[in-house]
Design a protein around this nucleic acid. Structure first.
Lengths: 336, 336
DNA sequence: TGAGGCAATGTTATCGCTAACATTTAGTAG
DNA sequence: CTACTAAATGTTAGCGATAACATTGCCTCA
């Protein structure tokens, strides 16, 4: 069954008794081909096991059918899910996706990742790197193809899809306020991350709006950090009754610390996370959090990008509102 | 600053006053180029902002520099980390990686994913799909390029890298036996997964070897399943003192169920997981588990594949031993 | 001193496709 | 019946590299 050599367009043409150009037309679904001819050509392809060469196609048409994704922190669930669904959406439209994992805090790594992709001749680029600096570098380095950012900073004239983190931060905070909490602390993500600043902004705005004093502690997404902060946070004497923490992972660390300290959640302390990981349903207590639809996010981003490439693009920005999921880690403030 | 047109090899040749072939030689590091000439050509490239066309190169040399990864369950940490590190390893050697996410339980999806990659003209393929059936399909559909499997079934004549799940299952079981447990239950992964069967086999062999009776309950990796099984498992009357559960995620569900039932871990029940997720340090109690080095796994797989492509391959199989991490979820069996 | 050999470079053909223009065929209008 | 038009197909020329072979120049050695 070994084919001595992959058949090319001329082999198909010969067998179907047409010119190679006709074969090419069939390949590209050119409408001006008689159905009868088309059938004959298709049959010839079939019997030769013909497979078009993407390289030749790319060379002749200067369209590579390649897209690039520059992605950091792919080991986390969110980015991984986004990348996964973007790939599926692209493939459905016949595109190939090359994903390059980078260390977004290392400018060299960002630059070399982009170089790698540009060598390929990608037609579009998606950035799944919430670190602002990385996005800036990428935008600056790429000029002649469309670029879409996921969940990051954006300008009105750039393609971008993001979760409305401000709205999410506001919803979390408002929920706690509605439960009667007044002394609400926010533990943020790391500085330089879009999500961090916008979630914190949503929190701050909502607090101020309710005439309450915002207090932000810097975190960095890591479980361990949630744990560490939880261990030393002066809950009792400062009379803190609620914490809005910028992601669920840190929340797990925080819960663990409170358990060790004997501080009961939610009886003494309410906690709201962000992400709704699968684990969040099974923590003790289950975590009240904000759910992000990564699948939808990935799909929309890819569709935006593909529309821009094909010139059928209408809008530039897309926004998803996270959903507040109520679970056991929040309760009304205890009566004094 | 807009380049009217990307420079090609002829433009460079003209500027450097050499033939295009000399430029090509510089590009390919051909040794028979005078250093002086080489410098001149490189300078010309630089000043024209020349970038070689991968498509043209692929067409002329019939080497695409493309590798494929067929991967399922990329939302999980393990596969995601493997894919990530494989990409990095490939990129370090100048290769491009196209990752296709599939639903490994849907044969159609597997097949179409492979077709997609084959269109590309990949030079090698990596399978990150522990479901045996998917690997079989893939191996059958691909004949003329090397294929490496990660963490799956293999034959001696095929490229494969895997964690020694049998050894892991045995180590977990032996640890419990050493602590004095006799009535040890195993909750396995889903049927049809390589990891499931080999971990279960390690457990079973170790139990039998110690003259104990193995009892296996079918699981499926999901947190929720660990929870469900934990809720209804007849621990007390059957006098079960230890559980080896096939992954950490299910272990989280199991822990949650036990907490709700008021069964203390590890005082009344010892639990060993598998994977060592980051969360596993922060569960309550922290989970004794087996750690897999996904980074190393990805690296070795890619190196095996690249060696095979370049013909410098020496070995076919590689095996990694998981490491037993002792934490708070296991303790000596309570004295009667 | 001239033949042989090697190092450095040049020339031509080719990879498999698409683009652009050319040709054929058939149908229609005057 | 001729001329014009549109539909269907054919012909020729690249796309930007590498491969294979050809050529040049200089050095070595008998």
């Amino acid at each position: 069954m070994a084919n001595p050599k992959q058949a090319n367009i001329y082999d198909v043409a010969r067998l179907a008794k047409v010119s190679h150009q006709t074969v090419s037309r069939v390949l590209n679904n050119n409408p001006s081909i008689r159905p009868e001819t088309k059938t004959r050509v298709l049959k010839a392809m079939e019997s030769l096991g013909y497979r078009p060469s993407l390289a030749a196609r790319a060379l002749a048409s200067s369209r590579s059918k390649m897209l690039g994704i520059l992605s950091s922190d792919t080991d986390f669930t969110g980015p991984a899910a986004m990348v996964h669904h973007m790939e599926a959406a692209a493939r459905a439209q016949g595109y190939f996706v090359v994903t390059v994992g980078i260390d977004a805090n290392d400018e060299e790594s960002v630059q070399s990742g982009i170089d790698h992709l540009m060598k390929l001749g990608i037609e579009g680029l998606a950035l799944v790197t919430p670190q602002l600096r990385a996005v800036e570098i990428a935008r600056a380095a790429v000029s002649d193809i469309p670029v879409v950012t996921l969940d990051s900073m954006y300008r009105m004239d750039e393609l971008a899809v993001s979760v409305d983190n401000f709205a999410g931060g506001a919803a979390a905070t408002q929920h706690l306020i509605d439960l009667g909490h007044r002394n609400i602390v926010h533990i943020s993500g790391p500085q330089g991350w879009f999500e961090s600043t916008t979630r914190a902004a949503g929190y701050t705005a909502t607090m101020l709006n309710a005439n309450l004093t915002p207090q932000v502690i810097d975190g960095d997404w890591q479980i361990e950090t949630g744990y560490r902060i939880g261990k030393k946070l002066d809950v009792e004497s400062k009379d803190i009754t609620a914490i809005f923490i910028a992601n669920d992972r840190m929340a797990f660390g925080l819960l663990h610390a409170m358990r060790e300290r004997g501080i009961e959640v939610p009886k003494q302390l309410s906690i709201v996370g962000f992400d709704d990981l699968e684990e969040s349903t099974y923590s003790s207590p289950p975590l009240t959090t904000l759910r992000q639809d990564f699948k939808e996010l990935g799909n929309r981003a890819m569709n935006l990008l593909l529309a821009e490439i094909s010139g059928t693009s209408t809008k530039k920005l897309d926004r998803l509102i996270p959903e507040l999921i109520l679970r056991g880690s929040t309760a009304a403030v205890p009566k004094l």
